[in-house]
Design a protein around this nucleic acid. Structure first.
Length: 479
RNA sequence: CGGGGUGUAGCGCAGGUGGUAGCGUGCUUGGUUCGGGACCAAGAGGCCGUGGGUUCGAGUCCCACCACUCCGACCA
């Protein structure tokens, strides 16, 4: 039996219609439900549990590096939002407003935060006075609202959950260091926990967050060859500090503006997980963030000793720190197999009279479909090993897809032709001119994903205009 | 925001020319099953997306709106 064999009905084939496949998986795996408001999606327990696991990992990493959680208000007065010109211009088209309190019209409109830079800045204006107050390393877990025109589960909600970090530093170097360190944190989350390989690097000026000096991003490739920005980390310089009049007295007794950063990842990551790992049988969750890592399916439950043995295994695995669950509902085994494949549970453990007699059990891997006969003795260790193996192989499989779908291009025609043959990332040299970036987009529909830290010289000249070029840029289609 | 598609039971769908709704599956109960979506029997479940209109009468015809979905443009 192979893992790629389609065993679940009702899910559109991934290669036939990727978008439809995605929608089917999201619904059938019980991740979301739609609400009465467009783009405001109900995260069902299974999806929320994934988010909680991601939160747990990231929050731990943030705290390890000295960050503190805070909570800012949901509502921002219009006058405060207006303070930074580029920020408001960037977000104005998608801001939702509160205009009434009860029946009374408010004297000033309040915006529902699309992001909280302005609130943090106002707070820093009030609380940062001396070099001794710095740095401030704040983070908040919350939801934000952006009135998107087109919405898709996880990828683009009008309200979505995220974390936004906002830090203030005495020096530019320290702030830049923070920005890059956070990018590394995101890369570690993606690769070590989500099994999603990333490309790290700064964005082009055109793709930079409104108001930021530099935006760094971790870019991932989905199974269909499109890119997904998994996380961003912005360096603000002192742009916001000046706009919000944040000043501190330095050691040399002079007034200075501090330097700031902000960074975030959202529930969009879950969309990434689905699109990187899923297959025609449904979801495949990376074991380290999966709510359930292993599901026990007892066979012939009514027969002597089966249920007791299954319960015993569950207890042993839980004690060993493995997130195991057991399905003792009266559904048929075949039904359960299909159900947990659709939900992407990494390992399935079958235990029936036959195994019992041999002091063995059957373990089936979700990612490969491989069936293993494993001794009950020492089971915990073997399962821990298998979970690691599944993680490693998911990551490796995603890396192969990234490599197979990445191509080099030295001219626009070549770039377009290669993209039409196979959707993916183009590596190309770029002169740094925004006009060329625009032209590339118009002629190939691709946009600059990032300027990777890991550079390679593919050619001497810009893929678009032919003038000398220093930087290699990744171009791609994106979600 | 532009272009297409779809809204009828939890889900998937059928309901020519108008006459107050049906199939599959799921659900409930009982029984037999159980190593790849088991079977039998008896039940329950619908303001036909919303609001207007035409008509003696609208799931069906007309108008408007809303939601979901796909493809573009914009964004995390």
């Amino acid at each position: 039996m192979t893992g790629s064999q389609k065993r679940v009905e009702q899910i559109t084939s991934r290669d036939k219609d990727f978008a439809q496949w995605y929608t089917d998986v999201v619904k059938k795996a019980g991740l979301i439900d739609y609400s009465g408001v467009k783009g405001c999606v109900i995260l069902r327990p299974y999806a929320y549990a994934v988010w909680e696991n991601i939160q747990k990992v990231l929050d731990g990493m943030f705290k390890q590096t000295g960050h503190e959680n805070v909570y800012m208000p949901l509502l921002i007065p219009e006058s405060l939002l207006q303070k930074e010109k580029e920020l408001i211009e960037g977000f104005a088209p998608e801001v939702a407003w509160v205009t009434h309190g009860g029946a009374e019209e408010l004297s000033e409109r309040l915006c529902i935060r699309p992001t909280s830079e302005t609130l943090f800045c106002e707070h820093y204006h009030n609380t940062v006075h001396s070099w001794r107050d710095l740095p401030k390393l704040y983070n908040q877990w919350c939801s934000v609202v952006r009135w998107e025109k087109t919405t898709r589960p996880f990828l683009r909600h009008r309200e979505f959950l995220w974390q936004e970090g906002h830090t203030v530093h005495a020096t530019a170097d320290e702030a830049i260091e923070e920005t890059v360190a956070i990018l590394e944190t995101y890369a570690e989350l993606c690769e070590k926990y989500l099994a999603m390989p990333v490309i790290k690097g700064p964005k082009t000026k055109n793709e930079t967050f409104p108001g930021a000096a530099v935006t760094y991003a971790v870019e991932c490739m989905m199974h269909d060859g499109r890119g997904l920005q998994a996380g961003t980390s912005h360096y603000f310089g002192d742009i916001f500090a000046k706009a919000f009049d944040i000043e501190f007295t330095d050691k040399d007794n002079t007034q200075k503006h501090p330097f700031q950063t902000s960074w975030g990842v959202s529930t969009r990551l879950i969309g990434g997980i689905i699109m990187v790992h899923g297959d025609d049988s449904g979801l495949i969750l990376p074991p380290r963030i999966a709510p359930t890592q292993l599901v026990i399916v007892p066979i012939s439950m009514h027969k002597e000793g089966v249920l007791d043995a299954a319960k015993d295994i569950k207890t042993r695995l839980l004690t060993a720190g493995i997130r195991a669950s057991m399905d003792m509902s009266d559904q048929s085994p075949g039904w359960k197999f299909a159900e947990y494949e659709m939900k992407g549970v990494a390992l399935r453990l079958e235990i029936g009279p036959r195994d019992l007699a041999e002091k063995m059990c059957v373990i089936v891997r979700r990612d490969t479909g491989e069936k293993l006969h494993v001794a009950l003795n020492g089971l915990e260790k073997e399962i821990a090993r298998l979970l690691d193996m599944v993680h490693d192989e998911l990551l490796e499989r995603a890396r192969k897809n990234l490599a197979a779908r990445t191509f080099d291009a030295t001219g626009l025609d070549e770039m377009k032709a290669k993209l039409e043959k196979k959707i993916g990332f183009a590596r190309a040299m770029w002169c740094g001119n925004a006009g060329c970036e625009q032209e590339i987009n118009e002629k190939t529909s691709m946009r600059a994903r990032c300027v990777p830290f890991e550079q390679e010289k593919i050619a001497d000249t810009c893929v678009c205009c032919g003038s000398p070029a220093e930087k290699m840029v990744i171009f791609g289609l994106q979600y």
